[in-house]
Structure formats: structure tokens, C-alpha cells
């Protein structure tokens, strides 16, 4: 008994020595630390831009200054063009991305889990991923006409392969040791997929989703810029194309700034926190 309690003490001592409390940083300091560098970067870019503009190398209609682009944005906002266009594009993007996830995830599981399927579809999937999705705009337009169905087709063809490839690489990166342990503790068949394979593949899957969104958003904007119709309404792509048609460089820059802002916002507000949460729980971030 005495030996037992001395063992307990040694163990408690070792445990205490070998685990160090994680350093806690204040929320405010963390926010400042993560927000400051991008703000500085944006300020620097705008400063260079302003300097180029002030140097008058190009005429105003070729390179407008930051203030002109800003007032163009303000005008668009006053006219009530901004929010509907942003909402329109995000709406189409969200539906298209959601459908891509719904299709790409099971497709990736099939390809990742079954060798013959992988041998057959794998190369096609990787090939599709390298095909610029803009290439699908002409056939989709001929097939569906200028309708939302055409937009979604282009988005799906852009995002589904990328999401499926993400699932496959997530599955491939699962350490075989986890599967062996899973089998030993009694996870077979579906239980193994549910309790071991899927949670282990989650980080790779999330990276695939993030990339899938980027593909979806790019494909959507490409179609919106190329195809315009009453049925498709006023989107961000429409704003950009409209600026080109009226030879409004400041308006074009303003539209690009909006497109970029949506991309950055979706990434920073949804994907980055989600990935950080998952990786941090596993001690990977």
C-alpha cells in the first residue's frame, strides 16, 4: 500500500512536470494581432496606387485614383445597386456551392474508398479540376439559355471536382494506424467509417470545401460577366460588365473590389474559423 501511494505521487509529479499550461492570450490582443497586418497591407497597396495615380503616367480613364473608385462605390450604393447585386451573386453562389457539396462529398467518398472507381474516375476528376470552368459557359448557355440553370451548371462543374478531390486526399491522409486501432476496438464496416474514417478525414475535407468555394465563386462570376439577361438579374458580374460597356474604369474597379470583398469575407468569416477550430482541437494549429 505504501509502495502504491508512492507510485501515485511519482506519477502525479511526472504528469505535472510534463504538461505545461497553454499560454492564454487576451481576446483583444489576438484580434489586433490578426487584423493589423492585413490592414497595413491594404494601406500600403492603396498608397502605391495613389502614388501611381498622382504620377499621371496614364490618363484618368485608364487608371482612376482610389478616391474616384471610392466615390463610384458610394454612387452605386446610393443608387441601391450594391446590396441587391451582392445579395444576388451570394445567393447563386451559396445554392451552387451547397449543391456542389451535396454531390462532391459522396462522389469523393466513392472514389476514395473503391479502387475501380478511383481508377476510372480519378484521372477525369483531376483533369476537370485543371480545366478553366469558363470553358463550360458556351455549352451551358447553348443548352440552358441565359437561365440560373446555366449558372449552376458552370458552378457545379467547377466546384464538384475540387470538393471531391479534397475528400479523396482527406481519406488518403488518414493514418493506417487509426484504422487498425479502430478495427481492434471493434469498429467494422459502417461503424469504422463513422467513428474513424470520417472524423480522421475532416481536416482534408475542410480544405477541399474551402477550395471548392473558391472554384464556385470564380465560376459564378465568369458566367455572370459573360452572360447577361433579364432572367439572371443584376449581379456583381453584371455591374462589372456594365462598367466595361460604359467605359467606366472607376466603376469596374469598384465592382472588382466588391467581388474581392465577398471572397475575403466568406473565407475569413466561415472557412478560416471553422478550420482553425477543428485543427486546434487536434493540436495541429
Amino acid at each position: 500500500m505504501a509502495a502504491d501511494s508512492s507510485l501515485a505521487h511519482i506519477e502525479a509529479g511526472l504528469d505535472a512536470l510534463e504538461t505545461s499550461p497553454e499560454p492564454e492570450r487576451g481576446t483583444l490582443r489576438r484580434v489586433v494581432a490578426s487584423a493589423l497586418p492585413p490592414i497595413v497591407a491594404v494601406v500600403l497597396i492603396v498608397a502605391v496606387w495613389q502614388a501611381l495615380y498622382a504620377a499621371k503616367i496614364w490618363p484618368d480613364w485608364k487608371l482612376p485614383g482610389p478616391s474616384q473608385v471610392f466615390s463610384s462605390l458610394k454612387d452605386a450604393y446610393r443608387n441601391g445597386d450594391v446590396w441587391p447585386a451582392v445579395g444576388h451573386s451570394i445567393g447563386h453562389g451559396a445554392v451552387g456551392f451547397g449543391a456542389s457539396v451535396a454531390i462532391g462529398t459522396p462522389l469523393g467518398l466513392l472514389v476514395g474508398r473503391f479502387k475501380p472507381v478511383r481508377a476510372g474516375i480519378g484521372p477525369i476528376m483531376s483533369g476537370l479540376q485543371s480545366l478553366p470552368s469558363v470553358a463550360w459557359v458556351p455549352p451551358a448557355l447553348m443548352f440552358f439559355g441565359p437561365t440560373p440553370a446555366m449558372l449552376y451548371t458552370v458552378v457545379l462543374l467547377g466546384a464538384v471536382p475540387s470538393i471531391a478531390v479534397g475528400v479523396v486526399s482527406g481519406l488518403d491522409q488518414v493514418p493506417p494506424l487509426y484504422l487498425r486501432v479502430g478495427r481492434n476496438i471493434g469498429a467494422r464496416g459502417l461503424a469504422s467509417v463513422r467513428h474513424v474514417l470520417l472524423p480522421a478525414a475532416l481536416p482534408g475535407y475542410l480544405a477541399g470545401l474551402r477550395q471548392g468555394w473558391a472554384f464556385a465563386w470564380r465560376s459564378l462570376l465568369a458566367s455572370e460577366i459573360i452572360v447577361q439577361s433579364a432572367g439572371l438579374g443584376h449581379s456583381l458580374g453584371f455591374l462589372l460588365k456594365n462598367a466595361q460597356d460604359t467605359n467606366d474604369m472607376a466603376g469596374a474597379f469598384a465592382a472588382i473590389a466588391l467581388i474581392l470583398a465577398v471572397g475575403v469575407a466568406v473565407n475569413q468569416l466561415i472557412f478560416v474559423p471553422l478550420e482553425r477550430h477543428v485543427l486546434k482541437a487536434r493540436g495541429l494549429a
Partner: peptide, 11 residues
């Protein structure tokens, strides 16, 4: 079965 690595599931 136990291994050299604990092989605990990190999630």
C-alpha cells in the same frame, strides 16, 4: 492491442 504510439484519436 497497444502500440508504441498511443494512437488515441485526436478528434
Amino acid at each position: 492491442l497497444m502500440f508504441q504510439e498511443s494512437a488515441l484519436f485526436p478528434w
